[in-house]
Amino acid sequence: MKEINELNLPENLKYSKDHEWVGVEGDVATIGINDYAQDQLGEVVFVEVPEVGDTFDAEDEFGTVESVKAVSELYCPIAGEVVAINEDLEDAPELVNESPYEKGWIMKIKVADASELDNLMDKAAYFEMLKG
């Protein structure tokens, strides 16, 4: 298990209290689980992703991540419509562990309300939350 100081938390992403990350480009947000979440879950063996076209409100459950140890729900950090899902996760769910911010992304959504991004944490605030 990683120490909090060892976590990889990129500066350019936003973080939710449920340990998802959000990367924004234009009006599209890419969402995945962060290094802390993947480390806590252990080896991911299955990712249940939504379908393109599904819409979610902020904090809606949009899928699940199963590790050998546990099943964990995924909560949508901001509202939007799914425009892409990471199909590679079906055959290689371990990408969530190996590359949580690159190859292990889970879905991309068209952001419904950009002001909701302000409700998310930056790296420093998320780090403080983890330290409790």
Binding site: G42, E43, V68
Partner: peptide
């Protein structure tokens, strides 16, 4: 990755990963 099991500090899995260990 360590956890309390029956009052003992025990390994749940190593870097190998639980699937590879199984």
């Amino acid at each position: 990755n360590m956890a309390n099991f029956g009052g003992f500090d025990m390994p749940l899995w190593y870097d190998t990963g639980v699937k590879a260990e199984h």
